[in-house]
Design a protein around this nucleic acid. Structure first.
Lengths: 149, 149
DNA sequence: TTCCACCTTCCCATGGTGGCAACGTCAAGC
DNA sequence: GCTTGACGTTGCCACCATGGGAAGGTGGAA
């Protein structure tokens, strides 16, 4: 089975599979005489394992650990669970961070008329959260324009 | 005011300020004879605007637009609000994505005894979500080990 | 034989930031 | 004046996971 076939069978891209091999997540695939990577059904299990772990947000480095635990018949489920819990905490931290952004922005957005007038509390708060009534750039000198050297 | 001072006054790093100039988010700073960038109080307002927009998760490209709206006295608040709403949708999409990851992982984690035994539904589900009782790598051939060329 | 789909390696880009190297500048203390 | 140390400059590389594309080789079918 060529790499493209393995890719379709697992939902990964050929690019990803090669990359995983390069970074040591997969053992080096056997090659045909022409240098084509060859995959077998057993390999698909590993690829799908990676695919699912990625879909849960695990970074490749942690997946490397998960794979080694998977293969270790003498592993303690405690170790796997600890890894999962750690990742859950990271996910929750990110969720809280994004939620706070959303809440603040939602608050600003609700105060904005959203009409043709220029007055906008969103810009005002970004400009100066303490004096949200002034929404004009005090510089007014083209700060966002890139000048040539 | 040198760049380090402007950085401390705004909570950005000198690196970021230089980077924002390079990508055209800031106009080219005036320089001393020695080539040092010089900043004035007006510049701090712009830098703080960027800092706050970043803290709401806006990417630099969108901040470029926000800055141009900020300076445009004839802007319609509708345009600003539309940008904010779009970003809110992106934040919510990301939050949903991460939340689903967390929920799935939380479910798996709760089924895991977390003791010294090797049986682990987390690994089993990653290995094969349809037959979660088999948690051993069917390959068992060192897939995660990087072999030298 | 020709053609097309597929494979290979290698390099570059993303986004936003940090780190480091190599070098120039400024001000204070001696 | 000289040294020292803090600060400035540019430039390159790294992160993370992935995609894109170039340039060239392979395989199989018509």
């Amino acid at each position: 089975m060529n790499i493209g076939h393995a890719a379709k069978a697992t939902g990964l891209s050929s690019k990803m599979i090669r990359h995983y091999e390069v970074i040591g997540l997969l053992k080096n695939a056997t090659r045909t005489d022409a240098g084509y990577r060859q995959y077998h059904d057993n390999d698909l299990h590993v690829l799908r394992f990676i695919k699912r772990a990625r879909s849960l947000g695990f970074p490749l480095e942690q997946i490397k650990v998960l794979l080694s635990l998977w293969q270790d018949r003498k592993r303690a489920s405690k170790d796997v669970k600890a890894l999962a819990q750690k990742h859950i905490l990271e996910l929750e931290a990110k969720i809280r961070e994004l939620s706070e952004m959303r809440d603040v922005l939602e608050g600003l957005s609700q105060d904005c008329a959203g009409d043709q007038r220029p007055d906008c509390p969103i810009l005002s708060k970004l400009a100066d959260p303490l004096h949200p009534h002034c929404s004009l750039d005090p510089a007014q000198n083209g700060q966002h324009v890139r000048h040539q050297k």
